[in-house]
Design a protein around this nucleic acid. Structure first.
Lengths: 225, 225
DNA sequence: TCAAAAGTGTTAATAGTACACCCATGA
DNA sequence: TCATGGGTGTACTATTAACACTTTTGA
């Protein structure tokens, strides 16, 4: 019975992470300028190989942790890239994931050591292998998901202004949004809660700070079912 | 440099196909009642192992062809299932795909030989490993895709009545659709073309036959961009 | 003549879009 | 006092949802 399996070939399986961050400059990706062989000096996604003792999902979490120091980050599988020659030297099947993180939270030393840099999403360098294609698919999926689930909050600090929130969605959708219509819609979402706090950094007048309440969101889902 | 790769483990990589079909009884899946070891007698998806000379996508096409005799079938990747113990005897990482085919077209001899059976989607037997989970994700993705792209026609014969089309979408969405609203919407879709033909099989009165025009659909996409 | 499926419009409700000015503040 | 970003409401348009009867025909 072992022969049922053993007559088939085996493959290196990698994970690659498309790591989104957001700040006043818009959406960025955390990329690696490789500081070791092979492909020294090339830009790539942060990746690694799946090991025997971990699921593929866990490998993605581990890799994200190794490069950013972060745990409990929102991640989604983008898909598997399995062209025969997608890496020139060896056949590697790679599973891509996207991650959404607050650009202020990551471990800066850890990222520096690995030669990680934030690159604005609309001005990415050219990337190794099929990483460009992975990024495009990840952006598409993230946009789609953001339009029907409150995942954007993973990219914001706990407290945020409505202008920040609007800028985020404009960056995700890649188009401008009418301010009054946006605020009207937000006001209808009970899971986006006003706080008593005012942000005085980004404007003279000061802007009301809001926060995302995941409990209320989860409750509101139940009523829909 | 070879050591960059060789210090990492390798894995069997499989593909599993969630094969949708549609007829008057609704949506069905083409399943396998295994007629060989291991897992003799168990119900499973149609699957196989990725080989050295083929991409993962090509492996899925090959497996579909082996079991149904069909080529050029609409397929989409569902995702990769990589839990450590998802198969009890060996570690296998599996990439799931869904396929949409016309239930009248497949090679019946070929399916019989492999012990394949159509099972109604709302009355599936319990399946091997995590195949149940794959099916659920595939249904969800197929529903999502069907709501924004005309993939349903892959499940219908070339000529179909509006009642068939409505029944199909009711089966995909899992809820009833108002007949007049549905027909109004279809009438606005220039890529669903009336023919001169009347189907006299499914009703005494006879029902107009329609067909999907992919050229018109592709054109209409361009104007949106 | 009747059972069975085909075909057909109108109205109300909801959601989405377009649009321009005043406010509060610190420099 | 003025430059900067914060905040607000209304009218129009498009989309969606609800709803019931007549037609045709073969058995």
């Amino acid at each position: 019975m072992t022969s049922y399996y053993s007559k088939h070939p085996q493959f290196y399986v990698a994970v690659d992470c498309i790591i989104f961050g957001f700040n006043k400059d818009g959406l960025s990706l955390l990329l690696l300028k490789r500081n070791m062989e092979p492909f020294y000096g090339a830009w790539s996604l942060m990746g690694g190989f799946v090991q025997n003792n971990e699921s593929v999902d866990d490998a993605a979490k581990r890799v994200l942790h190794e490069y950013t120091g972060l745990d409990h980050v929102y991640m989604e599988q983008v898909g598997t890239f399995g062209a025969v020659n997608r890496e020139p030297d060896e056949r590697v099947i790679s599973v891509a994931y996207y991650a959404l993180l607050n650009i202020n939270d990551y471990d800066k030393k850890c990222v520096e050591e690995h030669n990680g840099y934030w690159a604005k999403i609309n001005a990415l360098p050219s990337l190794l292998f099929d990483h460009q294609e992975m990024v495009e698919k990840a952006r598409e999926m993230m946009k789609q998901k953001a339009s029907c689930a409150p995942i954007g909050f993973n990219l914001l600090p706990e407290l945020f202004t409505l202008t920040q929130l609007q800028n985020l969605y404009e960056a995700i959708y890649g188009c401008p949004i009418d301010k009054r219509n946006f605020r009207k819609k937000v006001a209808e979402m009970s899971f986006i809660e006003q706080t008593d706090l005012i942000d005085k950094i980004s404007s003279r007048r000061g802007a009301r700070l809001y926060k995302f309440n995941n409990n209320i969101y989860s409750q509101s889902l139940k009523f829909k079912l």
